[in-house]
């Protein structure tokens, strides 16, 4: 939740600072010492080394992966590790499961949270504060508290070992309500009031006046719920009881702790398949995640 609230307010603060700052600051800018860049580059290298090593290792043959000391660059390039994901394991199936669960969770949050977020932000009704407190009060409940009763529930609903069972518990998240409510609060009331004067019904106001203005917030919510669903582990691990329902993290984790735990080539290639799409999505859409953060630095 923190990642989200921060950038929004950050944009403002950054802009404020820019406005407030007279020319004197430019001197300070010139003083950014070279050693600081060296330290930052070194730090960044340490942070991305695991990713680089993952990608390099994934194209080494298994024999080279066991070599001590390890080779820095692959001597023999191979895609056999990736092929093994298809032949030894059913990775396309896991990938599809992960994608369906993440898209379902994302869509659910975008629809449900914007609806409730609007009601909580702009509509007058009894019980509004109670609803808000109830929803936001569950923000800090850990997943480990709910998974046992959830399993009993899905067992009785006949949903165990199905994809809907992985989507339903996460498609109405308190975080999304909080985010959407905060965003919709900043939409001017005049717009809504004007639509009312023009005779638009309350629901129509939401769908044709408010929702079209929620683009940035919906994008942020979509990216974040997709990511957290894609990376979610405990609940899919519990509720997926047969291999054809595994999501990527479940398949990868169970393979990594099973009897094949030293099949490094396949495991590393699997990690690439789980991590790379997410990194790509993040790099493309990072502005939605760090909105505003980007507007202060370079440009």
């Amino acid at each position: 939740m923190a990642t989200l609230t921060a950038p929004t307010s950050h944009e403002e603060q950054g802009n404020k600072k820019k406005g407030r700052r007279p020319g004197g600051r430019d001197d300070a800018r010139l003083r950014t010492p070279a050693w600081l860049y060296a330290v930052m580059v070194a730090g960044l290298f340490l942070v991305v080394v695991p990713f680089l090593w993952m990608i390099v290792s994934s194209v080494k043959p298994n024999s080279e992966l066991r070599q001590v000391p390890p080779t820095l660059l692959p001597h023999a390039l191979t895609l056999s590790n990736y092929e093994a994901l298809f032949t030894d394991l059913d990775f396309p199936r896991f990938f599809l499961n992960s994608a369906l669960v993440s898209l379902g969770t994302m869509a659910g949050n975008m629809v449900f949270c914007s609806m409730l977020g609007y009601a909580l932000a702009k509509l007058e009704f009894r019980g509004r504060n109670v609803l808000f407190a109830l929803v936001v009060g569950t923000l800090m409940v850990p997943g480990v508290v709910t998974f046992v009763p959830l399993f009993v529930l899905t067992t009785n609903l006949g949903l165990t070992n199905t994809l809907p069972a992985m989507i339903l518990p996460f498609m109405a998240g308190p975080f999304g309500v909080f985010l959407m409510r905060q965003y919709i609060l900043s939409i001017p009331d005049e717009l809504i009031q004007a639509a009312r004067v023009d005779g638009a019904g309350e629901l129509r106001i939401f769908f044709s006046v408010v929702l079209p203005l929620c683009g940035p917030a919906l994008a942020t919510l979509g990216v974040l719920t997709f990511l957290s669903s894609w990376n979610n582990f405990l609940w899919p691990l519990v509720v997926a009881t047969s291999e054809d329902k595994y999501t990527l993290p479940v398949a990868l984790a169970l393979y990594a702790v099973g009897q094949n735990s030293t099949d490094y080539g396949l495991l590393i290639a699997g990690a690439v398949v789980v991590v790379l799409p997410v990194l790509a999505v993040f790099l493309v859409l990072q502005r939605h995640i760090m909105q505003g953060v980007a507007s202060t630095g370079i440009k």
């Binding site: 990642t3 942070v47 990713f51 582990f233 993290p249 495991l267 990690a271 991590v275 990194l279």
Partner: peptide, 13 residues
């Protein structure tokens, strides 16, 4: 970058 990655996947790495 590490924040957006799957804990399971980076744990394997």
């Amino acid at each position: 970058l590490p924040v957006v990655t799957s804990i399971v996947a980076v744990s394997v790495v």
